[in-house]
């Protein structure tokens, strides 16, 4: 690195990167908005914004839970599979009514999160490994429970997916509520302070008497719960349970949203607004590519580039 030789330039570079970390995500969102307003027909319409807001919902909700986990220095690769698990549960328990089915789905998500959390917090398994196993095993389990796509004809679930309140879709209400909850938890509660401290220095947190394991367990459970919420909402919007393809590779988008939003992968920091903007950014990116008729292969390659760029920028300060 040339950083040592040329302090002035290094200072500038650092400032640029620090600034990018802090505000880059908003710049990205703004740039994509400007681009779309200029070049995408019918972009500036209520209908389009509604669509975008609805489409971003699953990734947004996942990334909120993911941000909590990442702030503790962990990772959860299983969120997509937990979505599938929730979808399978909806289909299986719809006979008991939509509310019961949703509750079962949420409990299943929290339980999957609890398994992850227990492995990470109590058994000392690396988060990547524990959640990778859950990613594969959870998907397998959902497929065992519900081998193929199952259409949902329940009115309540359909209403949740397609209806609105005061002109705003239920899905958007739910994600707004969850954003508020997470922001409150992180800023105002002891739990929120603890999870960031644990990510910053776990041993110091232990010696300071923080209930590290309990906190970690709760964080992974929350992440699983959020994933289940995302699964329920995605199922409601799709009006079908599809454990095979729901949430496939979505963990990547969620992780990217978090990292783009300025929460470093090594933990110790948590940005809620940035995470939301990160999810919006990923959504806009994908929809822009699709609207300009680029094939899915391009979308994925572009996403790959964004992820790597985001992690690269995020790493710079983390190292200091």
């Amino acid at each position: 690195m040339t950083a040592v030789d040329v302090p002035a330039v290094c200072g500038d570079r650092e400032r640029v990167i620090g600034w990018l970390q802090e505000y880059g995500v908003y710049v990205g969102v703004a740039a994509l908005l400007v681009f779309n307003i200029a070049f995408t027909p019918h972009f500036l319409s209520v209908e389009n914004f509604r669509t975008q807001a609805v489409q971003v919902t699953p990734v947004l909700i996942l990334s909120l839970g993911m941000a909590l986990v990442i702030a503790t220095g962990g990772i959860d690769l299983s969120v997509g599979s937990v979505m599938a698990l929730a979808a399978a549960m909806i289909s299986l328990y719809l006979g008991y009514g939509p509310v019961a089915a949703i509750l079962v789905a949420l409990v299943a998500g929290a339980a999957a999160g609890a398994v992850n959390g227990a492995l990470v917090a109590f058994a000392g398994v690396q988060a990547i490994v524990a959640t990778l196993a859950m990613m594969i095993g959870g998907r397998g389990l959902s497929l065992v429970l519900l081998p193929q796509l199952d259409g949902i004809r329940n009115a309540g679930i359909r209403e949740l997916g397609a209806g609105d309140l005061l002109g705003v879709p239920y899905l958007v209400w739910v994600s707004a509520a969850l954003i508020a909850v997470v922001a409150f938890v992180v800023r105002r509660t002891v739990f929120g302070r603890r999870l960031v401290a644990i990510g910053g220095n776990r041993r110091a947190s232990e010696l300071s008497g923080l209930p590290v394991r309990r906190t970690l367990l709760a964080v992974y459970m929350l992440c699983g719960l959020f994933a289940a919420v995302a699964g329920v909402l995605a199922t409601a919007r799709l009006q079908a349970s599809d454990p095979n393809s729901i949430g496939q590779l979505i963990e990547l988008s969620a992780i990217t949203a978090v990292v783009v939003g300025g929460t470093p992968l090594q933990g110790g920091r948590m940005r809620v607004a940035g995470t939301v903007a990160g999810a919006v950014l990923m959504q806009l990116l994908v929809s822009t590519l699709i609207k300009h008729d680029l094939p899915p292969s391009w979308t994925q390659i572009a996403q790959t580039a964004v992820i790597i760029a985001a992690v690269y920028v995020a790493r710079e300060r983390g190292r200091r």
């Binding site: 220095n201 041993r203 947190s205 010696l207 110790g268």
Partner: peptide, 21 residues
């Protein structure tokens, strides 16, 4: 370093860490 400070947090948060409850 290893067991004391939480480097990314502020002076304030570090002081309040143990006494948080």
């Amino acid at each position: 370093k290893g067991e004391g400070i939480v480097p990314e947090l502020s002076v304030r948060e570090n002081i309040a860490l143990a006494a948080m409850p």
